[in-house]
Write a protein that binds this DNA or RNA. Structure first.
Lengths: 240, 240
DNA sequence: AAGTGGTCTAGACCACTGA
DNA sequence: CAGTGGTCTAGACCACTTG
């Protein structure tokens, strides 16, 4: 170490983010190529002059980001197929409307008990069919249609739903606030508005609409499956 | 501790997942209501009989899941607005096609250098305009149109792109494999096919199509912005 | 200024899983 | 069965942020 000289060798304390970025840099510049096995955490720790747990923290992050894959005994490898990984937040529809500075509105359209049709049993991955509560409702923003939801709620898993006044409170809101889930499948696609949907959303037949389908379970028991058809112009953004 | 008796008090070793689940349970059953402040990590550690770092690991996970919010000095609080948080993987288009068991194909449609129009400068959050490489290309699955991409690549940030044979290798593939980014914005929406897009994707005018827009930067420098229009029937699924 | 979460360390043991 | 990642601990210090 030379103070006032040219090179100053300093004992730098590396944070786990530093380690992550340096390892990531090596993946990007080809030092570690796709499919390659990286050194063991312990060796990296020695190289970087930090504790193994610091390397572990860094590698955990790279693993979560989809950069590397880790296995006990198998070691750490650079993923062969790079992916863009993003996190999506889907809020309660009321909050989504209010966050846009609009006034939230809600209208119950239909409430029936029906046997679940095959397309929905498939989403739940159920063997046979059963009776479920079907809730059809419209969410509004400043009085304009915003999202139309067609929802099935399992009466076996969530019998309490029958005691909720679904004309006053949306099933969306009640379920998200009261029924935790352990599994959630999401599906996004575009569809042309059919006559009925167009009428409900006050748009033209054939308009391109974004659809969000969400199915949740608690353990293996189905909770709800909802097809939310959004009004034209709806966008999904990933959080920064 | 009574072996062979009724109650056996065992010194159980809690894992961070156990701690996470127990705290999560308290959020769900209302012990900790939305907006409430939770006990400090240290107090929870004492209560659960584990190290503070174990509680820290658990809370970090709950924080990532959007269940609680943590701030130094401010403590840990239950989020007021529950969200459904999901992780999306967007693979390279080639892999997406091949993972469906189809044969991947690629066709370069247009390659020009143009001044970036306002809608695209907005996506990049650029002050003025500049010349960029515009690449228009079609990805095919088993010979059928799969995704049409209209892409802008910054010649200032990525001059090497000019040396790549974009008729042989898609910009998608080359960029994902070679140009790391530090920021990625994603946007999804539905649009009706216009005449040109319908022709390219071999579908009818007005068909509902899912659009994926992705813009990436390295630091503050723009890399690329792409509008990927998918063929009818395209879906986005969250990984389990 | 003080309280609380964030990180680092060194060491130990556990739990997968590939050879 | 042996190698590697995963987790836990106890303690220390740091960094942010709020009262």
């Amino acid at each position: 170490m030379t103070v006032g000289g040219d090179t100053v060798t300093e004992v730098v304390r590396l944070s786990w983010k530093d380690v992550r970025d340096r390892v990531h840099g090596r993946v990007l510049d080809g030092t570690y190529a796709p499919g390659d096995r990286l050194p063991r955490d312990e060796d990296l720790a020695e190289e970087f002059g930090c504790a193994r747990s610091t390397v572990q923290r860094a590698m955990q992050d790279l693993s979560l980001s989809g950069i590397v894959e880790r296995r006990r005994k198998g070691g750490t490898r650079v993923r062969r197929d790079p992916v863009t990984r993003a996190t999506l937040d889907i809020p309660i529809t009321r909050n989504e409307v209010e966050n846009r500075g609009a006034v939230y509105g809600y209208r119950l359209i239909g409430l029936t008990t029906e046997a679940v049709p095959p397309p929905v049993t498939a989403k739940f991955e159920m063997a046979g069919s059963e009776e479920m509560l079907r809730v059809r409702a419209l969410h509004l923003a400043d009085g304009h249609p915003f999202v139309f939801e067609d929802r099935w709620v399992s009466l076996r898993t969530v019998p309490e739903i029958l005691e909720i006044d679904l004309a006053a409170q949306s099933a969306n809101e009640w379920l998200v606030r009261n029924k935790p889930y352990t599994r959630c499948d999401l599906r996004f696609y575009a569809m042309n508005a059919d006559a009925e949907t167009a009428a409900i959303l006050e748009t033209g037949e054939g308009a391109a609409l974004m659809v969000i389908e969400r199915t949740t379970w608690i353990g293996l028991d189905p909770i709800t499956s909802v097809k939310a058809v959004t009004a034209p112009g709806y966008e999904i953004l990933t959080r920064s």
